[in-house]
Design a binder for these strands. Sequence first.
DNA 1: ATGAGTGTATTATGTCACTGATGCACCTAG
DNA 2: CTAGGTGCATCAGTGACATAATACACTCAT
Lengths: 115, 115
Amino acid sequence: MSQSRPVYLKLRDQIAAAIIEGKYPEGEMLPSVRALAAEQGANPLTVAKAYQQFQNDGLVEVQRGVGMYVVAGAAGRLCSSEREQFLREEWPEIRNRMERLGIDLAELAGTLEAN
Amino acid sequence: MSQSRPVYLKLRDQIAAAIIEGKYPEGEMLPSVRALAAEQGANPLTVAKAYQQFQNDGLVEVQRGVGMYVVAGAAGRLCSSEREQFLREEWPEIRNRMERLGIDLAELAGTLEAN
DNA sequence: ATGAGTGTATTATGTCACTGATGCACCTAG
DNA sequence: CTAGGTGCATCAGTGACATAATACACTCAT
């Protein structure tokens, strides 16, 4: 009940953000499943499950016995696909909910600057 | 994978939207657990679990042997609480994600009209 | 009183996602 | 070849979720 969202999905989002922001540069090796697991206090298998999402999409390249590397263009492709998914699937629901709750876009505009 | 969100939470959201939109007017009786279960193809106990969220918050009044009634001011209170929750918990994450993906508020403004 | 309609409590069962521990296959450095 | 690092496959445990079958307490129209 405490953690509504699965850990491996949280890790996936976190890694995706890191790739897009260039924290894990293209061509570089990702942290090993054991290393990231120790850092995040999770199980290596849980980290591996998060990594698998990316190798299924061809965003990371696996070299068995060596490590997983970010392929060239991964950040761009990842950003594009997530952007499209957001606009197509998530935003409509958010928009409906805002409409129902009487929240205006202008009301949210100010928060964009308040970083 | 098909049902990422529990059924009783989906029902809860659906009922909350119906109350806010006035589909279930204040003072009126909610559909019985058996009736809504039959309509939604769910188990009566699952519907009861969804209803219980509302009686815990004092938004519906239970008359044993009769039914559950929407209390006066339920729509307003529900709208306020959900609005506050949205602004406090959900919007910051959405904002961060939009920033990372390079999505501008102006880009979304047009979709508000396209109902 | 009776019966049909409410919500609710109890117990049991099956499914599935999540997580974890262990061991294996692979590569590289020495 | 050996040692230590990879990723990965297998098996199992845990808990939430949904469903089910009853049974009960209550109210209201009849």
